[in-house]
Design a protein around this nucleic acid. Structure first.
Lengths: 229, 229
DNA sequence: GCAAAAGTGTTGTGTATACACCCATGT
DNA sequence: ACATGGGTGTATACACAACACTTTTGC
């Protein structure tokens, strides 16, 4: 590969905001840095881009190495590039984000970090670099997206109840929704597939279990469908 | 500035999609390249990022140098990073986009280009690099944005008629809208400031002239206002 | 007066909201 | 049987789409 060294060359990191939802609150996955700069502080998982990999391949490699997570569906968020955002020199950060269910994954602390942990978005620790801006941007994007697209199924079990879905939406959007209207709207949208099963063993009436009907959802999106909560 | 040379270093370009509207069709500003690679082909205006400037400063500098345009309000679009997207080596492209009124600006062909010209988005020439993807992404973003935010005033004269605004929307979205419903919706939104003047000299009834009420618009956006066409 | 586009109003239809009621389950 | 949350129905208000008529301007 040619070096193009006639032109200025910054370094580039890929940083990933991983949202998780445990049934109660929205959290993000953070790493405690072992090395300078910002040793001992928390940051979003990230690493340097190699020259022979795509941005997405890089994100996947970095997440596997540093958190043990792999094969996630990542969406590009924003590219941060303030000249002073990294004390080591000029480093751009191309950021990605995704949503996962923390109970479905196993975390591994890579050797570059002291610790990997979930933090509720309402109680974030002090963050290194400009990762406070990164997280703020990611939360705004997630909120904007959830109001017009039924994202968030990744955060629930494959089979879930309508109440669980409503809790998730209320949590992301930080609002209260009418239980009955939510029920009507979400079933009318046609993207929930009834399983015919119920969740037994709870204290109250057993709620019906649904699955996300991705085929039907993709078909609706193609035809210009817009979900509105 | 430290070099960080222990880490792989790609080059980074800033590329800008400039949309223009001449009252009839939506166009984009393209440069005819003088040098390899892709000499003689058309590309979106762009250039290499310097290490001491922000991404936005870089975009501004590049546009001034190559097109004569300056002080535009640019919005970040996407970062393209396929390893093979530039034959010279690994080059990331951080892209921006904006909307301007072609009649309000004067173009200068920088010495790096043979020519600078507007092309209707429906009749694009062969494009260098992956700029076909760049333009497609930009058009999608513009269409998505215009349906929930009243963008596009930058493309009109400071004073404009409701019909002119409707033509613009129909052009961007590629649909036909009911004249009377559009009139009601846009005036009810409160973001048009009546000037009390009319545009005389046309063949038919003189239409009222309006201005964009940016203060009121910003206030509405803050309070969670959503425009829907 | 005529043509052409601008401005205004009405009405029906569907969708969102704010409600109240019954049902099923575990204790 | 009772408490608790799950499922369903309905009346109202509101927004939107479809449509017809009047007004103003230049010729």
């Amino acid at each position: 590969m040619q070096s193009l060294s006639a032109y200025p060359q910054p370094s580039v990191t890929i940083d990933c905001v991983i949202f998780g939802y445990d049934g109660e609150k929205l959290s993000v996955l953070l790493l405690n840095r072992k090395e300078e700069p910002y040793a001992g502080m928390w940051t979003v998982p990230g690493g340097f881009l190699y020259l022979d990999e795509t941005l997405e391949e890089s994100a996947d490699r970095i997440l596997r190495t540093k958190t043990g997570l792999g094969s996630l569906y990542l969406e590009q968020l924003f590219t941060f590039g303030r000249p002073d955002r990294d004390p080591r020199g000029r480093v751009l950060s191309v950021t990605y984000y995704t949503l996962i269910n923390p109970e479905h994954v196993e975390l591994t602390t890579g050797k570059m970090a002291n610790d990997v942990n979930w933090f509720p978005v309402s109680q974030l620790p002090a963050l290194g670099f400009d990762h406070k801006d990164v997280l703020q941007t990611a939360i705004q994007r997630l909120q904007a997206k959830v109001t017009y697209q039924p994202v968030g199924f990744e955060l629930l079990n494959p089979q879930f109840t309508i109440s669980e879905l409503q809790d998730l939406y209320e949590c992301i959007l930080n609002v209260r929704l009418d239980r009955r209207n939510f029920h009507k709207k979400i079933t009318a949208s046609g993207i929930l597939k009834p399983t015919g099963q119920k969740r037994l063993g709870e204290k109250n009436r057993a709620p019906e279990l649904f699955e996300f009907d991705r085929e039907r959802y993709d078909a609706l999106v193609k035809s210009g469908f817009q979900f509105k909560i």
